[in-house]
Design a protein around this nucleic acid. Structure first.
Length: 679
DNA sequence: GATCCTCGAGTTCT
DNA sequence: CTCGAGGATC
């Protein structure tokens, strides 16, 4: 079948586009599109050329393994070519099963034959490097380049501490080429970008690009200041060293030579072994201190590897099995503006749903006007969305070359999108706010949700849906209205039968009994969160005491300064706020008089600050906090020099590490109980 | 005035 | 979880 003119021009178009991205990636170290998109273009071209071989041109990017070389680094010819590895298209378990099936077919194995033995390893997201040791000494380090010829980066690699300059062996082979990956750990990457930002320099998009940039840096002293890591996964040319029988033994031998090899490797039997490894690494992926693309499977026996050989330029005995992408391209369908409890306007991008990092993402916050401006996100733009270690999707960048004509930059509306009130910009700061106050339905709803929240009045079952119905139906306009609801009014709502109406009323009734701290928090005074509400409650002991306090009295409270004090005074100065409080009390909201027990109780933890991390064996987080606070201690969120004790449970994370480096005492739950008992 | 430590507030998806 | 900003401290 002859290729049509259409296909011919499409192939040409793809070649040009890929070449442009190659240049940006390899030469400028500034990729313009995410890898997945690049892979997609590359695959389309590959498929096109497979079906229509007459379209293949000698300069086609499919005809070489790597990318363009940088002219100013010396070229190195690889004695044994550095090949790329085939990527399985199915990123689910099917990928592993398909690979195993292919291997068995090629080896002529039937159903009765035993499972094939594999080695499964991590696929690092870094830069492929070949290290050449001659008589035990590091003689040359080179990048992959186009697979045949790479670049000499010996001075740079010498600065990487995990790369041994001499093999740890008495008798070293005349030639031993080790292949592996150089990458940057995530914590090192974060610190690097922090410094870049502070210095006003450009920040790196991801750890891989940072690593690539430094490996190919001309000035080795710059590379030396970057914490790069090396991990080996195979061999190149070998002279005078007898190869063992399996790939697993090769890796073990490298370890014995003092070469770093990831300990996250395993011998796996048959497809199930591969699927299990893939699943266990996928589960551990976010917890790893570095980025990986996926995993790699290799037939363990070197003899079988020789029998399987190569297909085109890829080894038939190995495959990369990638994870779902953590970065994807999608389109901005619109930019909506949400109104929060405090009236803050938050622009949110509505996205064409896209599967990234294991979930479908359709929204991403744009924080504020400045954030939108700095990225210059516009409706209709193609953007990169990331969902990395953290959970919250974010827009990373806009693909400038995909911008359509006639788009306009985003502007905050002058009127509140919900109530139409004027929008004001906070005292020379970043945030815009709706001036409508509680007359704005959005703010009213958020205030109600806050009031009913678990940490505030804790009214069970009063969620977003119900609040929407109550406010839109005109039944409720302020918290006190909740306590005036009756069964008939509720029953008039959709999807609200006898039973659920009774449940809601019971929950509201139950919530009337609360604590002073919860009540103060529930009011939603600006700058008064859970913590400050608790401090205010224990300092004044009663609501009347707080209501009577002036600015000076408030400043006596720990952690209350002029801004917070002014906010509190301002809130209580509003007649309608005082009236609302009186009405709530009249409706039956009450709390125990805190002053009575506070002094009677023993406070063995007075003056101590605790930080909780991990999961405790029997206590929930909330129970543990209650226990500590009841005994007179404080609980805070992050570890610092001021922290007295860190209470660590199962899966304790970075907070425990930090406690160790700061020399802060760490205890477990049983020890906490003993402290609370005062023993 | 600078720096560190916290807290408040907003956010996504299942 | 992360950003921004208030408060405390030196």
């Amino acid at each position: 079948m002859a290729a049509s003119a259409d296909l011919r021009s499409r192939a040409q178009q793809l070649r040009e586009e890929i070449a442009r991205h190659d240049h940006a990636y390899y030469v400028l170290d500034a990729p313009t599109i995410p890898d997945v998109e690049y892979d997609r273009l590359f695959r389309e071209l590959q498929q096109l050329e497979e079906r229509h071989p007459e379209l293949i041109s000698p300069d086609s990017p499919t005809q070489r393994v790597g990318g363009a070389r940088r002219a100013d680094l010396p070229a190195v010819r690889h004695a044994v070519p550095m090949l790329s590895i085939h990527t399985e298209t199915d990123s689910g378990p099917g990928g592993a099963i398909a690979f195993d099936a292919r291997i068995r077919r090629k080896l002529g194995l039937g159903d009765g034959d035993p499972p094939v033995e594999y080695v499964a390893e991590l696929k690092f997201d870094g830069v492929a490097i070949s290290l050449r040791y001659e008589h035990g000494l590091l003689a040359r380090a080179a990048t992959r380049g186009d697979g045949e010829t790479g670049e000499d980066v010996t001075p740079n690699l010498r600065t990487i501490r995990s790369v041994p300059l001499r093999l740890a062996t008495a008798v070293a082979p005349p030639v031993l080429e080790v292949r592996g990956e150089v990458f940057m750990r995530r914590d090192a990457f974060e610190m690097l970008n922090e410094r870049q930002r502070a210095a006003g320099e450009k920040v790196f998009v991801n750890p891989r690009n940072a690593a690539a940039g430094f490996v190919r840096q001309l000035d080795a002293t710059v590379t030396a200041s970057r914490p790069l890591t090396f991990c080996a996964y195979g061999l190149g040319e070998v002279v005078g060293w007898p190869l063992p029988a399996t790939h697993g033994q090769v890796l073990d031998a490298l370890v014995a030579f003092g070469i770093p090899v990831s300990s996250r490797r395993a011998v796996a039997h048959g497809p199930q072994g591969l699927v299990d490894f893939h699943a266990s690494i996928a589960a551990a992926r976010d917890a790893l201190p570095f980025d990986i693309d996926g995993v790699v499977y290799k037939v363990n026996s070197l003899e079988l590897q020789r029998r399987l050989g190569f297909v085109t330029r890829e080894p038939a005995w190995a495959v990369a099995h990638k994870f779902p992408a953590q970065e994807e391209l999608t389109r901005v369908l619109g930019i909506e503006v949400q109104v929060g409890r405090t009236g803050k306007l938050t622009p949110v991008a509505r996205l064409e749903p896209v599967f990234v990092g294991g979930v479908t993402v359709s929204n991403a916050t744009l924080h504020n006007e400045d954030f939108v401006r700095s990225l210059d996100v516009r409706i209709g733009d193609t953007v990169t969305v990331r969902r990395a270690g953290d959970v919250i999707p974010q827009i990373v960048s806009v693909v400038a070359e995909r911008r359509q004509q006639g788009t306009v930059s985003f502007q905050m509306p002058a009127a509140c999108p919900v109530c139409g009130s004027a929008v004001v910009r906070d005292e020379a700061e970043k945030d815009h706010r709706c001036s409508g106050g509680l007359y704005c339905p959005a703010q009213c709803k958020q205030a109600l949700l806050h009031f009913a929240g678990r940490r505030a009045m804790d009214i069970e079952g009063l969620g977003e849906k119900l609040v929407d119905q109550l406010v839109d139906g005109g039944l409720v306009r302020s918290p006190v209205d909740l306590f005036r609801l009756d069964r008939d009014a509720l029953a008039a709502l959709e999807r609200m039968a006898e039973k659920s109406a009774a449940n809601v009323l019971a929950a509201i009734e139950k919530a009337k009994a609360t604590t002073l701290a919860r009540f103060i928090f529930a009011l939603g005074i600006r700058h008064v969160g859970e913590r400050t509400a608790r401090d205010l409650a224990s300092h004044f002991g009663s609501l009347d005491g707080l209501l009577a306090a002036d600015q000076a009295r408030l400043l006596e409270v720990a952690d209350v300064g002029p801004v917070v004090a002014a906010s509190i005074v301002g809130f209580f100065a509003e007649p309608h706020n005082r009236e609302a409080i009186a009405q709530l009390q009249a409706a039956g909201v009450h709390w125990p008089d805190g002053k009575l027990h506070a002094d009677v109780r023993a406070r063995p933890l007075a003056g101590m600050t605790f930080v909780l991390t991990g999961t405790l064996p029997t206590l929930t987080r909330e129970q543990a906090i209650e226990l500590i606070v009841a005994a007179g201690g404080r609980v805070s969120g992050s570890v610092s020099k001021k922290t007295s004790v860190v209470v660590a449970g199962e899966d304790a994370g970075s907070k425990l590490d930090r406690a160790r480096t700061l020399g802060v005492r760490a205890i477990d739950e049983s020890e906490l109980r003993r402290l609370v008992e005062g023993t």
